[in-house]
Measured scan of single mutants.
Amino acid sequence: MGFKLLSKLLVYLTASIMAIASPLAFSVDSSGEYPTVSEIPVGEVRLYQIADGVWSHIATQSFDGAVYPSNGLIVRDGDELLLIDTAWGAKNTAALLAEIEKQIGLPVTRAVSTHFHDDRVGGVDVLRAAGVATYASPSTRRLAEVEGNEIPTHSLEGLSSSGDAVRFGPVELFYPGAAHSTDNLIVYVPSASVLYGGCAIYELSRTSAGNVADADLAEWPTSIERIQQHYPEAQFVIPGHGLPGGLDLLKHTTNVVKAHTNRSVVE
């Protein structure tokens, strides 16, 4: 069995187990497998329904001669939608809004960016022009300005110390501490036991640490421990890039980060 097929099978099995364990909360999309990078042309966006009122959005972007996937989250909030992270750029984010209108038909009224990198804030200006209120932590807003990236308009308070959590509509926002970046936030959907790890969490097929220019490698494993301790009931975990899975993604990420750190020390 090929690795790609095995990865998709694991996603399907995880979703099936969740649907059985929580039949009222989960209505997993039966329309197909989780979209992969090879299936999404740059400039297009796919939506994948995880649970009743919960979707991931998947886009792709060219970077350094390669094409990478990027995940975000959409959560229903009454007759409105909360968006977590842009679709990595203005063109993708405009396509995301169009796809949401086509498939869901509810307005996106608020959006949260989970850290300051372009795959999370690139497209904020498109959201703002569409009347979406954009939010991020003060740290993310400051770092985005320093980096020359787009800056969300509103500040999220109460997320300055490791372990801080605040309720934001249908989700809980959690600051686990520094990891992929010093400002990275985690998003949890309690009604569906869905954990969105953003770039602080890796997919299972990833074996290298990737972009760690703004990471705190020493603190990252401790931050992941905080996530595990705060959300032990999480059933569906979405990484910032690639295929979702279960809580095993947290341990896998820790292993990859520690291996990278150990290699760096040896070198």
Results as ranks from 00 to 15, higher is better:
Gln103Cys: 14
Ala234Leu: 15
Arg167Gln: 09
Ile227Lys: 03
Gly72Glu: 01
Pro221Glu: 12
Ser113Ile: 15
Val75Trp: 02
Ala15Lys: 15
Tyr12Ser: 13
Leu143Cys: 04
Asn92Glu: 07
Val28Leu: 08
Gly245Tyr: 03
Thr261Gln: 06
Gln49Cys: 13
Asp214Asn: 07
Ala19Ser: 13
Leu13Arg: 13
Gly2Thr: 10
Gly169Ile: 04
Ser27Ala: 08
Thr254Ser: 11
Lys258Glu: 14
Val132Leu: 05
Ile104Arg: 00
Ser7Tyr: 15
Ser139Met: 08
Asn255Ile: 08
Ala165Val: 13
Ile40Arg: 10
Thr182Lys: 11
Pro190Asn: 07
Gln61Trp: 12
Val265Asp: 11
Arg226Lys: 12
Pro41Arg: 11
Pro244Cys: 03
Trp55Asp: 00
Pro190Arg: 05
Ala218Ser: 10
Ala234Phe: 04
Ser193Ala: 10
Thr93His: 03
Lys4Gln: 15
Thr140Met: 02
Gly246Glu: 11
Leu143Arg: 13
Glu145Tyr: 15
Asp248Ala: 08
Thr60His: 11
Val67Arg: 12
Glu145Asn: 10
Glu33Ser: 11
Leu106Trp: 12
Gly65Pro: 09
Asn92Trp: 04
Arg46Gln: 07
Pro69Trp: 11
Phe174Leu: 12
Ala192His: 06
Asp183Phe: 01
Gly198Lys: 01
Ser181Pro: 02
Lys251Thr: 08
His115Gly: 00
Glu219Gln: 10
Gln235Trp: 07
His230Thr: 10
Ile74Met: 14
Phe116Gln: 03
Thr207Ser: 08
Pro232Ile: 06
Ser139Ile: 14
Cys199Phe: 00
Ile17Ala: 05
Val11Arg: 06
Pro23Asn: 07
Arg110Pro: 04
Lys258Thr: 08
Asp118Glu: 10
Tyr68Gly: 11
Glu233Tyr: 11
Gly245Glu: 02
Gln229His: 15
His180Tyr: 04
Pro232Leu: 12
Glu44Val: 10
Asn211Cys: 04
Ser62Tyr: 14
Glu99Arg: 14
Gly105Met: 11
Asp216Thr: 11
Glu225Ser: 08
Gly210Leu: 14
Thr140Trp: 02
Val194Thr: 07
Ile238Cys: 02
Gly72Val: 01
His117Tyr: 02
Leu10Glu: 08
Lys102Trp: 14
Gly105His: 15
Gly131Asn: 15
Pro41Tyr: 13
Gly177Trp: 01
Ser137Lys: 13
Glu150His: 15
Trp55Ile: 02
Phe3Glu: 09
Ala192Asp: 07
Glu203Trp: 02
Pro107Met: 13
Ala133Leu: 15
Val171Met: 05
Ser208Thr: 13
Ser62His: 15
Val265Met: 05
Ala87Met: 00
Val257Thr: 06
Trp220Arg: 02
Gly65Leu: 10
Val171Leu: 06
Arg263Leu: 07
Ala179Trp: 04
Leu195Gly: 00
Ser62Gly: 10
Asn255Gly: 12
Glu39Arg: 08
Thr261His: 15
Asp119Pro: 01
Ala87Trp: 00
Asp118Thr: 14
Tyr34Asp: 10
Pro170Arg: 09
Ile40Lys: 13
Leu156Pro: 04
Asp85Pro: 00
Gln228Lys: 15
Ile20Glu: 10
Ser70Glu: 03
Lys251Tyr: 15
Ser208Gly: 12
Thr153Gly: 12
Ser160His: 14
Ala200Glu: 02
Gly131Thr: 07
Ala259Val: 11
Val194Phe: 02
Gly158Trp: 07
Val237Pro: 01
Glu99Gly: 13
Glu33Ile: 06
Leu47Arg: 01
Ser56Phe: 12
Thr114Gln: 00
Ile20Gln: 10
Phe26Met: 06
Arg110Ser: 06
Ile74Asp: 03
Val132Glu: 02
Gly246Met: 11
Glu80Phe: 15
Ala200Cys: 11
Thr140Leu: 03
Ile50Met: 08
Arg263Gly: 08
Asp85Ile: 00
Thr14Gly: 05
Ala94Arg: 13
Gly78Cys: 07
Ser155Asp: 07
Val11Gly: 07
Phe26Lys: 11
Ala19Val: 10
Ser70Arg: 02
Leu9Glu: 08
Glu101Trp: 15
Ile58Asn: 05
Ile201Val: 08
Val37His: 05
Arg141His: 05
Ser139Phe: 02
Ser113Met: 10
Leu159Thr: 04
Ala90Asn: 14
Ala130His: 11
Val187Asn: 02
Tyr48Phe: 11
Gly105Lys: 15
Ser7Trp: 09
Gly32Gln: 05
Ala111Lys: 04
Gly43Pro: 07
Glu44Tyr: 09
Val28Ser: 06
Val257Gly: 01
Ser31Asn: 09
Asn255Pro: 04
Pro35Tyr: 12
Gly246Trp: 03
Leu83Ala: 10
Gly78Gln: 10
Val146Gly: 12
Gln235Asn: 13
Ala192Cys: 04
Tyr231Asn: 04
Ala178Pro: 13
Met1Gln: 03
Ile186Ser: 05
Tyr202Trp: 12
Arg206Glu: 14
Ala218His: 15
Asp118Asn: 05
Trp88Met: 02
Arg141Asp: 01
Leu47Asn: 00
Gln49Trp: 08
Ser137Trp: 05
Phe3Trp: 07
Glu145Thr: 12
Tyr135Glu: 00
Thr86Ser: 14
Leu250Cys: 04
Leu243Asp: 08
Asp248Ser: 09
Glu233Phe: 13
Phe174Lys: 00
Glu101Gln: 15
Met18Gly: 05
Asn149Ile: 15
Val42Leu: 11
Thr253Asp: 01
Gly197Ala: 09
Pro221Ala: 09
Ala200Val: 09
Val194Ser: 02
Lys91Arg: 12
His241Trp: 00
